[in-house]
Design a binder for these strands. Structure first.
Lengths: 152, 152
DNA sequence: CTAGGATAGTTCTAATTAGAACTAAATGGC
DNA sequence: GCCATTTAGTTCTAATTAGAACTATCCTAG
């Protein structure tokens, strides 16, 4: 959203959007080479080395909306990578876990992806990372606070 | 993409994703109230106060891919907000500009949206903004550099 | 205990996304 | 001038997105 009006925050918005897109481009280039879509990878990564979890928890952890998550899980189930089970203690809930094939895939692709991402961060030390995290957190909180006021 | 492995950059990735999503949630809540989708708003904002431009330039400025842009422009044209024209000097090109109705809408919604976004940044001074821009730019360049090496 | 309200997951809609395929047009090396 | 290559925009596919509607289930106040 360019166009003048001399608002000093506009360049920051632009930088945030471009940084996020650069991240996605870099991360997703690798994920797609693994034969997965980005959301599919997120689900597998989140389920990896866990006994599984409810759709609700998976949605919260991956930030994928529940409507979309159903489709993502469907397609992963079709690939034989995840399985669904009813939950006895809450019959509205569905328990989702990696299959053996899914866990095997996780064991292969997750370390590879970490190595891929690590390359982008090679030039940053821990102080750099901590500083960037703090700046982003401040920004995120500002949007969250503004959102609370807006919804009022 | 949670899961241990103790990689110090993982929290930064998470923060970037969450900050971007917080931005989108805040920005889009307002845009949707204006009766537009986020990409539609971007196109109108980009075309506002300009004589118009080619699809290619519009795509570059909004970061909307050309396949998607065709659909976005189609729907804006259906709303009577933009018009298309052939370009005499390059017959492959299409020139896109706001209609009078589109420019009127821009004159109404763009300042409103700036005011909306300004609220989120109220607590930041110009030094804050400059610092955040610099941190994000460093991060973006790191992804860009890693991407160049990856493509090689 | 009961009923109203909240919730989990699925289904649905309109829109968007990446990227490929395509056609028409432009470009530039030879 | 010719032709191979590149490019602009459209069309297409599979997947995803936000959010609403829905059904079944759970929770809690009275």
């Amino acid at each position: 959203m360019p166009n003048a009006f001399r608002e000093p925050f506009l360049p920051l918005i632009r930088e945030l959007v471009r940084t996020y897109q650069a991240f996605e481009a870099y991360s997703n280039a690798h994920v797609r080479e693994l034969g997965l879509t980005p959301p599919q990878f997120d689900v597998i990564a989140t389920l990896g080395n866990t006994p599984g979890m409810s759709c609700k928890e998976l949605s919260e952890r991956t930030l994928i909306t529940k409507g979309t998550l159903t489709g993502v899980i469907d397609r992963l189930a079709d690939k034989g990578l995840v399985g669904r089970q009813a939950l006895a203690e809450d019959r509205r809930s569905v328990f989702v876990a990696l299959t053996d094939a899914g866990q095997t895939l996780f064991d292969t692709v997750f370390p590879a992806h970490l190595a891929h991402m690590r390359q982008a961060f090679a030039a940053f030390d821990n102080d750099d990372l901590a500083r960037q995290i703090a700046e982003l957190a401040a920004l995120r909180r500002a949007f969250g606070t503004a959102m609370e006021h807006y919804k009022r």
